[in-house]
Design a protein around this nucleic acid. Structure first.
Lengths: 212, 212
DNA sequence: CCGCATCCGGGGCGATACTG
DNA sequence: CAGTATCGCCCCGGATGCGG
């Protein structure tokens, strides 16, 4: 991108990661770890393939991304963040915390969705209401890939992949599931909106809205 | 800007503030407070005037910015951030903290500079090495408007405006001044690069590089 | 199938000029 | 002082092609 030409920390940062799609590519790599080109594409619905290739080159040139050739029989290229790229987590956290407010409005018509995108709302909007209780786990099935949420010791973490014997499994549309988790709607209302629940519903009480 | 069309907190945030120049306008309003159109322009060297007008309209429509008509005899329009706009401080902090690394490389040829842009490097890169000592103040004269830096109680703050009887005044080019404050170069080297110092040089010892 | 390159239309952006 | 008007250009989006 064209430089702002300003000797300022914020402007210098935007010189590097201010291009369209760039931070969303970093988001995918932070959420999913080392990824193939095709997987990045599926995690970035709407991106043009030439733009993705361009951005990957720019990120590599800037030292934020490394490209490793996986050995046969995998025979695939893996893109991963360098330590410098990982340091963008703080920026993405701040952006996600600020943008999560717009999630409460629900998805716009035609909005795409991937299960792992719930990671920020879950970690940012919720807290563990019983820090001294036994750790509990939830599996969220909102798309292709499930998200595993764990609450314990006052902390809430979210990461991709199915859980081994989660205490409760929620499946359905992301918006009502997010509403249920955040307490904006109750279980009955969530069910009416197509959310299905398997397991121990009492586990949901462990998740409480975090103080703003 | 065109929406990313993704039901994701980060993407929704970028839908609102991802446009070119937008975050730099927020930077100016955070650093300088309510500002006139002309002052914003001078704080954003390189921006086209139609773009500034466009962005101000977008920010107003998004509820991040308010426009107040100052009464006569001032007879001027003031642009200020709404509370929602102020909440972007966390995003700018994260961006500045990440981008400050590029400041160590020095300004690119032709880079513009404004004194208040040093606020982030100073607050992020430095700490008060003697929290129990008397508060001290420094005035940095690097451009048109001076920056006032205060160290006391372990905290370092930076804000625009000249100080009343600062303990030390530094004037010169921003890069060597930044190097002097961060300890990358010594006082002798800084003087050789044109930095002039008035007052008590011992005060500089209060500022130490913050742990990375 | 994976990881792109190429082509082309539209719009955001940049610079300058101008105005109430 | 606070913008509007205009005009190129280049970035972006969408489609298609293509070698490994």
């Amino acid at each position: 991108m064209r430089s702002y030409g300003q000797f300022c920390a914020v402007a210098k940062a935007l010189d590097v990661i201010g291009d369209r799609w760039t931070l969303l590519i970093v988001r995918e790599l932070l959420l999913a770890g080392p990824s193939r080109y095709t997987d990045l594409r599926s995690g970035l619905p709407g991106i043009a393939t030439n733009l993705l290739a361009d951005r990957l080159r720019q990120l590599e040139a800037a030292g934020l991304l490394a490209r490793e050739e996986a050995p046969p029989p995998v025979a695939s290229t893996l893109f991963s963040l360098t330590p410098r790229g990982e340091q963008l987590r703080g920026v993405l956290d701040a952006l996600g915390a600020w943008g999560v407010e717009y999630m409460a409005e629900g998805p716009a018509p035609g909005d795409a969705f991937r299960g792992r995108w719930l990671a920020w709302p879950v970690e940012r909007f919720l807290r563990d209401s019983q820090p001294d209780g036994q750790p509990v786990s939830l599996e969220l099935q909102t798309g292709e890939a499930p998200l595993l949420v764990e609450a314990g010791g006052g902390e809430i973490t979210a990461r991709p992949g199915p859980g081994t014997e989660p205490d409760v499994v929620l499946s359905g549309e992301p918006y009502p599931i997010l509403g249920l988790l955040s307490g904006r709607i109750g279980l009955a209302e969530a069910r009416r909106r197509g959310v299905r629940l398997q397991g121990d519903a009492a586990v949901l009480a462990r998740l409480a809205p975090a103080a703003a």
